[in-house]
Design a protein around this nucleic acid. Structure first.
Lengths: 358, 358
DNA sequence: CGAGCCTCTGAAATCGTTTTCAGGATTATC
DNA sequence: GATAATCCTGAAAACGATTTCAGAGGCTCG
């Protein structure tokens, strides 16, 4: 049981250097070495330098397990994202990481694969490892997770949404209002025959809210979406294609398709072209997220731009304050932006009806 | 000093539940509770169940710091990836995570943003926190990182490449051979005027190897690429577009463009179309990675498919074995696959109108 | 029916730090 | 020159789990 020893290339093993070793060499007590490391101010400069020399000479690094055990702080934040494959999350995470490392924290990332069970599991893992704060995505989380949060008291913030259940604070945008605005924009262009493609999953309240926004705006305009005009899909290009095909098969007269995600929208555009329909002349298609690809695709996609980096930074600031015991806001609402590009235009004349009052 | 206590919303604070609390409630000793958790086999089933009930009732979770301190094992693996925004890494990471959690390990992910300094920093963070093993991407890492690995003796494996410097074991594909094969494929179609778009960064030896493969194959065919026929770009769609425009401005006669990445290739295709050039009739374009988008784009992209999931699983298996002290291979070479889709075809006959495909 | 064996449980030592507490040395004050 | 005040430093007690070492029962077997 040479636990903390290190097998070197030659097979021998050399024990980890401890604070006590440094103390012995420097002819001081372990307490002093610890003080040099943690409160350099209170130790006589001359002695401090001497100890420092021995620390570097022996290349001593404190055992973080022991340190965490005693001090109760891990200086680590965890983030649980639904998937790593989406550029949109990546941007937030990078901003989060940058801001955290400025404050001496390290970020650990886990992914839940859009699975609440998995999310809970990762959360437990993180908490067990003594994480100081946690960043989540979206507002719908299992009851168990919420009670876990309450019981342990770990600071948690959820992102990309404007409010979350269970009293968890949130930083993000108003998804519903965003799609409502998008829908109103399309109504303003004169569209009346709509379709929607949404990636509905129990754990994805963002898409849920986005879909609600669409339906709300339409019903205010006196339009009701039939069940077959709302296609549920997984979050992938292929599903976007399939969804569009089905939608246009059932409702060939559709002139505007609102997707809850750029990925779905881009898939839909590809399929529309394959079906011989020009975008936007025959169908207008919109997305949500404004991923890099959205501007590069042909035609460039009309979509909603999310302040991903700000969300990440904001989450970092929130957690740092919360950990330090400073007062924190209940939630932060950030602005989104409707980005009009070329995937949308007025409906073909034949289909155009007298404009309705908004 | 209420370190391990938790301030609840009302301001009171309640201490963390410890193994001793469980023991008291269940009327057994802490030792027994520990055994129930770590070696369930050696405790009488009846008693074990009883203790288990109290554990869940009190929702006790062992303090990992204390556990790690005593046992010297953290049961945690770290992965440092260059960026989270790429689907291709995400796939490996997910496979890695799945395989690890089967064995009771948790995966922490850090990202280096293609920056060696950052990578080293994250590595130190991970090691200080007592990580049991580390997964890297690519074979080029700073000297400091390599000595850190040697000194600490943490098991490390690098991925996506067939061999790495500094004696670090690797699991991945032969990048050079893959692009060589791709180039030979294009030569076989009759192309002679080539261009290459590569995302060259000091820390990215994969692209380096891929570019080498292209040049090797061409020079074997007696073709030499001029410096202006090799465009260096960052890894983004926009850069792919810019690169293609520049390439075709300098060398309008180019009939085949080999990109070291699907993202670049897709950007290039978009730009080609914008320039009024049909792909593949006027120019053939190829990518590398076979991301989801590659098959969905129009025309579908000819590219190299990488066994991303297998790489992840393999890395997990390697580390688990290495940690357990079992013998491990020096490196693992996995097969890639040349996927021919519709973005490539024979070059247009020199002075004739291009024949119509399909 | 008693000795011996096996199985299971508990007491206590231990992991490497941090931090409180108290005391020794040094300086300031009268 | 003695006493008080001020610094620093060291000894020792945690922190929360794991694990060794023994010992208490319950069985089997002679």
């Amino acid at each position: 049981m040479d636990k903390k020893s290190i097998a070197d290339p030659k097979g021998r093993s050399r024990p980890r250097v401890k604070i006590e070793d440094v103390a012995r060499e420097a002819n001081v007590s372990p307490a002093t070495v610890s003080r040099v490391l943690n409160h350099p101010g209170i130790v006589r400069p001359e002695l401090r330098d001497k100890v420092m020399r021995f620390i570097t000479d022996l290349s001593y690094t404190p055992d973080s397990a022991a340190r965490a055990l005693k001090s109760g702080r891990m200086r680590t934040i965890g983030a649980i994202v639904p998937t790593l494959g989406l550029g949109i999350f990546a941007e937030s995470v990078e901003a989060l990481q940058n801001r955290l490392s400025e404050s001496g924290y390290t970020l650990f990332i886990a992914n839940s694969q859009y699975d609440q069970r998995r999310e809970l599991q990762e959360m437990q893992s993180l908490i067990e490892r003594g994480i100081d704060g946690i960043v989540l995505v979206g507002g719908s989380h299992g009851r168990e997770l919420r009670t876990l949060v309450e019981q342990t008291g770990v600071p948690v913030i959820t992102t990309y949404v404007s409010k979350a259940g269970g009293g968890i604070p949130a930083i993000g945008i108003d998804n519903e209002r965003a799609t409502r605005e998008m829908t109103e924009f399309l109504l303003g262009l004169g569209h009346v025959r709509f379709g929607a493609i949404a990636n509905i999953l129990p754990s994805n309240d963002r898409s849920r809210a986005r879909l609600d926004g669409i339906q709300r705006a339409l019903s205010e305009a006196g339009i009701r979406l039939q069940p077959t005009q709302v296609i549920r899909a997984d979050h992938s290009l292929a599903q976007g294609r399939k969804a569009l095909r089905q939608l246009l098969t059932d409702h060939p007269a559709t002139t505007a398709v609102i997707c809850t995600t750029d990925t779905l929208a881009i898939g839909a555009m590809t399929e529309a072209r394959k079906m011989g329909l020009s975008v936007p002349r025959a169908v207008s298609i919109t997305g949500f997220d404004d991923v890099e690809l959205a501007a590069q695709v042909d035609p460039p996609l009309t979509t909603i731009s999310i302040p991903a980096a700000e969300i990440g930074r904001g989450a970092a600031d929130y957690l740092i304050s919360a950990i330090a015991g400073r007062p924190v806001p209940k939630s932060v609402l950030l602005p989104y932006r409707l980005v009009v590009r070329s995937s949308t235009t007025s409906p073909p004349k034949a289909d155009r009806l007298p404009k309705r009052p908004r």
